[in-house]
């Protein structure tokens, strides 16, 4: 029983890691972007499981919420907005293809030689416990004097989200606020860039269906105002 429970994380790592690598290869290999997006979703979920194995439960939850929830929906929306019939022609075994695989293999060999066995052996013991434990200070009323408060310390375990939150809101408060500002700027930028607006020069290059749609919108507006 003990041997099973100690080798369980390794088994999960091997299985989930294999699925992650296989589905990431399929992301690159699939012709249809919808299939690529679904395999990317599978990769993200597998990576979330790998985060849980490294006692990063909060990051795993954020990964599922933001990547699997938010970014994938965005990708699927855009794939559906864009006409799939006009997919670019991709020639298999073109020079770019061979060069890309060569660069990828070279990069992989580079990583493999850097991370050769025995490089990272001195792990901190009980890292799981350290990453999920928070020191907590709390106040209670004194038993003898009701007007006095007594300060207590205690350690609470299995609190990874709380620990990450404490780090984010104390040591990393300024980067956190900058990140929120960044998200606001990205949102405004995405709206402004994605907005449809036709100038006179654009009307010449724009496809016909868009001009038709603009005209029908004008007609609808005139009909409503009349």
């Amino acid at each position: 029983m003990d041997a099973v429970s100690s080798s369980m994380p390794l088994l999960v790592f091997v299985v989930i890691g294999t699925i992650a690598v296989a589905s990431s290869i399929l992301v690159v290999a699939m012709r249809n972007p919808v299939h690529s997006a679904l395999f990317l979703l599978l990769t993200f979920l597998c990576v979330a499981v790998l985060f849980v194995l490294r006692s990063a439960e909060f990051v795993a939850a954020v990964q599922v919420l933001v990547y699997a929830g938010g970014i994938m929906v965005l990708f699927l929306f855009v794939v559906m907005l864009i006409n799939v019939r006009h997919l670019p022609e991709e020639r298999v075994l073109s020079p770019v293809w061979l060069g890309g695989i060569g660069v990828g293999l070279a990069m992989f060999v580079l990583f493999a030689t850097i991370v050769r066995p025995g490089t990272y052996h001195d792990e901190v013991p009980n890292a799981d416990k350290k990453l999920t434990t928070v020191d907590e200070t709390y106040l209670t009323q004194d038993a003898t004097n009701p007007n006095r408060l007594v300060r207590h310390h205690r350690q609470r375990e299995n609190r990874n989200a709380e620990a990450v939150g404490m780090a984010l809101y104390t040591d990393y408060l300024v980067p956190f606020e900058v990140a929120s500002l960044f998200l606001l700027v990205a949102m405004i930028g995405a709206i402004v860039i994605g907005k449809r607006e036709l100038s006179a020069a654009e009307e010449e290059t724009a496809p016909d269906y868009m001009l038709e749609r603009v005209e029908t919108e004008k007609e609808v507006k005139e009909a409503l105002s009349a």
């Binding site: 100690s6 994380p9 390794l10 790592f13 091997v14 890691g17 992650a20 690598v21 990431s24 290869i25 992301v27 690159v28 972007p33 690529s36 990769t43 790998l50 194995l53 490294r54 990708f75 855009v78 794939v79 864009i82 997919l87 670019p88 022609e89 991709e90 770019v96 293809w97 060069g99 890309g100 695989i101 660069v103 990828g104 293999l105 990069m107 992989f108 990583f111 493999a112 991370v115 066995p117 490089t119 990272y120 792990e123």
Partner: peptide, 29 residues
């Protein structure tokens, strides 16, 4: 427990696959 090395190898593999995809794919999405 899987070692840190195993994690680094896995992430290196995923990175290399992503790099290959960025280079060889012609579809912007």
């Amino acid at each position: 427990m899987p070692s840190t090395q195993a994690y680094l190898m896995l992430s290196g593999t995923l990175f290399a696959v992503g790099l290959v995809g960025v280079i060889i794919r012609r579809n912007m999405i």
